[in-house]
Simulated scan of single mutants.
Amino acid sequence: MCNRDSGQIFYEGLGFIYLEIINFVKSEAEVEDELDKVFFMLKNMSTLKTLPRIMKSAVFQRFFQLASYAKLTKEERTMYDISLKRKWDAEAVRMYQEGLEEQLGGLEKQLEEAKKAVVSAEARGEHKKAMETALKLTKIGLSVKQIAEATGLSIEEIEKLK
């Protein structure tokens, strides 16, 4: 029950329930709810070799992993920690390498686009230069056919210059 009095909250009726794990006597087959699972796990943790099938949820799996780690000797923990660190390092290197490969792929794509832009710009420049040359040659009085041969432009393009 909760009472409010001038901005303060008072809780009444809160109590504690104590359970002595030694008095929990249910077997794995008798476990019914989540609380029973917790008590079963706490009571039998020291004897469990594997996680019972009734406790396959992520919470119990993590709890079992932590308890298994806690059972290790100091040397075993050190070896486990080194192994775990190597695994994490390898994963970090793999992720970094994937990132670099992704960036490299993006850069290669940009380079190809830049090459295409340069080729296109060169072609436009060459065409513009040929048009300027054709204009000069028309002023000199050369025939359209001669100008087309000299510049590589089509006869239609040259005729538009006149």
Rank of each mutant, 00 (worst) to 15 (best):
R94G: 01
S154M: 05
A130L: 05
A67D: 04
C2R: 15
S27W: 01
R77I: 06
L72I: 06
G7T: 11
F40E: 00
A123G: 02
E101F: 07
I9M: 14
K109W: 06
F64T: 00
K116E: 12
I22A: 11
K71W: 09
K116G: 06
G106M: 06
E28L: 14
A67S: 12
G105Y: 02
E34V: 04
I140E: 12
L107Y: 12
A29I: 08
T138K: 11
E157N: 09
A117Y: 05
I22H: 03
N23V: 02
Y80G: 01
M79E: 15
K109T: 13
E126D: 15
L66D: 12
E159W: 01
S154G: 15
E122Q: 13
T78F: 14
F64W: 05
A58D: 12
K128I: 04
E34L: 04
I17W: 06
K116R: 13
M55Q: 01
D33C: 12
E76G: 05
Y69P: 01
M95V: 11
N44L: 00
F10T: 15
E34K: 04
L84Q: 05
V118P: 01
Y96S: 09
D33E: 10
Q103K: 15
H127T: 12
S143K: 15
Q8A: 08
E98D: 09
M55Y: 00
R124P: 00
K71N: 13
L107H: 05
S83M: 11
K145H: 06
F40Y: 15
G125N: 10
L161S: 04
G99Y: 03
F10G: 04
L135R: 11
D36H: 10
L135Y: 07
Q65C: 07
K129W: 06
R62D: 14
Q97P: 00
T50N: 10
A70F: 10
M95H: 05
K139T: 08
A90R: 08
E12L: 12
V59W: 06
S46A: 14
I147V: 12
L72M: 15
P52K: 01
